[in-house]
Design a protein around this nucleic acid. Sequence first.
DNA 1: CGCACATTCAACCACATGGTTGAATTACAC
DNA 2: GTGTAATTCAACCATGTGGTTGAATGTGCG
Lengths: 130, 130
Amino acid sequence: MVELHTHEIDTVFHALSDATRRHMLQELTQGERTVGQLAEPHAMSLAAASKHIKVLESAGLVRREIQGRTHLCRLDPGPLATVHEWLSFYERFWSGRLDALERLLKENDARKTATERDTKLPPSKPGNDT
Amino acid sequence: MVELHTHEIDTVFHALSDATRRHMLQELTQGERTVGQLAEPHAMSLAAASKHIKVLESAGLVRREIQGRTHLCRLDPGPLATVHEWLSFYERFWSGRLDALERLLKENDARKTATERDTKLPPSKPGNDT
DNA sequence: CGCACATTCAACCACATGGTTGAATTACAC
DNA sequence: GTGTAATTCAACCATGTGGTTGAATGTGCG
């Protein structure tokens, strides 16, 4: 459970860490685009853009359909949903209940309960990729 | 507007693209931790762990309070909220309306291929950090 | 004071990343 | 078939990343 889809999350976050690639994703929200179309707005060679697209593809964010000599790319939002959900685990830390939560954690910490039910986050659900 | 907090998003996504760092973040949800405590579970030198923490720090995900010879780290969830929000833009692509949306896009595509392709979409709206 | 502890710094290394250019591949169009 | 368009491949380069080790810094302690 811990270390479940770690590598997927690695590659997705890495793919998203580049502005060029994020821009390509945004472009793909408008519909399918060819490699050339995705490359065009960016001041770089086609080969460079092609590499970026390949990064997005290996992260599962983009699917490609080869149509004759052109490659049509479309957005696959699945991995975005995955990391969005991953991030949601931290939501309570930035939403209002933060202070209350912090107190709670400190309490547990100090008390050092034997009941690991609330001490340890259940490696059940989210955030537990790593 | 476009390219607003691009660099912040870059660094946050990059910080999140490493399992060691994600694990440290998760650990910090339990409360403050020293550098040594954060390093301990990971099979690497203290110096290496220290670098990871610095990456988290420069991404704004961790704040550090120096207390004598120990450095206390605490989670700062703000940047997580930022990228979570960034990802939310894509939510509609993975939630229910996806199929309808896809059909819509295909329609446009088929109908007015040339028109749509060459009329660049206005770099108008959202998700437009980059 | 003098030593041990917590952490960083500096130098180094292997490998990945993001970019380039020029040639190769493949498909369409005449 | 020849030529051209869309894309990738391969080699190369500069820089970044993640790790190491050993020395340096600074603090707490007897």
